[in-house]
C-alpha cells in the first residue's frame, strides 16, 4: 500500500507510430486536485484512459486506491468517477432519471441511489430541476448533471477530461467552486464542529469521501492556464511527456523576479528595443502590454537601461515593473528548453 490514491509509474502507450504517452509517472494524494495541462494531442486524454483501465499501457504500472489497474480493473472502476469531454446525457430523460440510469448501470439499488442522488443534486445546485428533461437544461446545467452522474457512486477519484470546454466564464467559475468544495471537505475535527453550517454542501462533501479524513481526489485536464492555476498541483504535458510538475505557486516561483511588464507607445518600437537588450531572453506581446523575461538577477538593470533607451528613442514609457509570472510565462519558458 502506498500513501497515494493514484500511483502510476513509467507509463507508455503508442498508437501505431504515434507515441501518445511517453514514460509518464504521476502520483496523486487523497484530497488533491491534479491538473494535466497541455494542448490537444499532448497525451492528456490517453493518460486518463490508462488510469481508469480503459486502455492498456504498453509499459508501466498503475495502482488506483491500492488496486492494480491491470489486474483488478473492476475494483478500480468502483472507486472512480469519469466525466469525459463528450459525456452523454439522455436528453429525453429527466435529471433524476439520468442519474438513476448511471447509478443502476453501476449496480446501485434504489435504496442506495435515491437519497444519495438528492444529496448530490442539491450539492451541484440542480435540486429544483430534478424533474426537468436533460434536453431542456442550459449548457452549464448539463455540465453539472454530468458531474452529478459521475459522483453517484461516491468515487474516491474523479477524472474530469476538459470539463469546461466551450463553457462561459461564469459557469466555469461555478463548476470550479463545486470541484474545490468536493475535495476540500474538512475532516471531522473540532474546528469543523464550530463551523457555520451550510448543510447540503458540507454534508454531501463529507459523505462523498469514503473515509472521514479523505476528500475526493480529482484529476482534471485542460489546455487553459487560468484553470491550471486553480489546481493544487499541475503537470505540464507536451508530446506525451510531463515536462514539469509542481504546485502553481512553485512553478511561478521558478521565474520569480524575472518577468517585467512593459506598457507604452508605440508598442512595436518598444518590442524592438526590448528584443535588442542582452539581458532580455524573451519578449511576448499581450495586447496592450509586453511581458519580458529577463536573465536571473538582471531585472533592476534591465528596468534602468530600457527606461533610458526608450526615452532616447523618443517612445513613451507608461509602465515598466516586475510582475508575478503567470503560468503561461512558465509553460513557455519550460517549452524552450
Amino acid at each position: 500500500m502506498t500513501d497515494y490514491l493514484v500511483n502510476a509509474t513509467h507509463l507508455k502507450k503508442s498508437f501505431g507510430a504515434n507515441q501518445a504517452v511517453d514514460d509518464i509517472s504521476l502520483q496523486v494524494k487523497a484530497g488533491e486536485i491534479y491538473g494535466l495541462v497541455g494542448s490537444d494531442g499532448a497525451g492528456k486524454t490517453t493518460t486518463m484512459r490508462l488510469l481508469v483501465g480503459a486502455l492498456r499501457p504498453d509499459a508501466g504500472e498503475i495502482t488506483v486506491c491500492g488496486y492494480d489497474v491491470l489486474k483488478q480493473v473492476d475494483n478500480v472502476r468502483a472507486q472512480v468517477g469519469y466525466l469525459s469531454q463528450r459525456f452523454s446525457l439522455y436528453e429525453d430523460l429527466t435529471v433524476l432519471e439520468n442519474i438513476r440510469f448511471f447509478a443502476e448501470v453501476r449496480g446501485l439499488s434504489q435504496k442506495e441511489w435515491l437519497p444519495r442522488s438528492m444529496e448530490i443534486l442539491e450539492f451541484v445546485g440542480l435540486g429544483n430541476f430534478k424533474d426537468r428533461r436533460a434536453g431542456q437544461l442550459s449548457g452549464g446545467m448539463k455540465q453539472k448533471l454530468g458531474l452529478a452522474s459521475a459522483l453517484v457512486t461516491r468515487p474516491r477519484l474523479l477524472l474530469l477530461d476538459e470539463p469546461t470546454t466551450g463553457v462561459d466564464p461564469v459557469t466555469r467559475q461555478d463548476f470550479w467552486q463545486l470541484v474545490i468544495k468536493l475535495v476540500s471537505a474538512p475532516a471531522l475535527s473540532g474546528v469543523e464542529a464550530q463551523a457555520p453550517q451550510r448543510p447540503s454542501t458540507a454534508d454531501f462533501a463529507k459523505s462523498a469521501s469514503s473515509s472521514a479524513q479523505d476528500g475526493v481526489s480529482v484529476i482534471i485536464s485542460t489546455p487553459y492556464m487560468d484553470e491550471a492555476s486553480r489546481c493544487h498541483r499541475v503537470g505540464f504535458m507536451k508530446l506525451g511527456r510531463i515536462i514539469a510538475e509542481d504546485t502553481p505557486s512553485n512553478l511561478r516561483a521558478r521565474l520569480a523576479e524575472r518577468v517585467l511588464e512593459l506598457r507604452g507607445d508605440p508598442i512595436n518600437t518598444l518590442r524592438h528595443i526590448a528584443h535588442h537588450d542582452g539581458d532580455v531572453e524573451d519578449v511576448a506581446a499581450f495586447g496592450d502590454k509586453l511581458h519580458l523575461r529577463v536573465k536571473e538577477g538582471r531585472a533592476r538593470a534591465v528596468i534602468e537601461r530600457l527606461t533610458g533607451v526608450i526615452a532616447a528613442e523618443g517612445a513613451t514609457l507608461l509602465e515598466l515593473r516586475l510582475v508575478p509570472p503567470t503560468l503561461e510565462d512558465v509553460f513557455i519558458a519550460l517549452s524552450e528548453r
Binding site: S184, V191, P196, A202, S229
Partner: peptide, 21 residues
C-alpha cells in the same frame, strides 16, 4: 478553506471571495 470562504464573504468591504484551488 470552506470556513475561510464563509468568514471572508461576511467581511464589510469584501466584494467577492472565491475558491482558487
Amino acid at each position: 478553506l470552506e470556513r475561510g470562504l464563509d468568514l471572508l464573504a461576511g467581511v464589510a468591504g469584501v466584494d467577492r471571495v472565491g475558491l482558487a484551488g
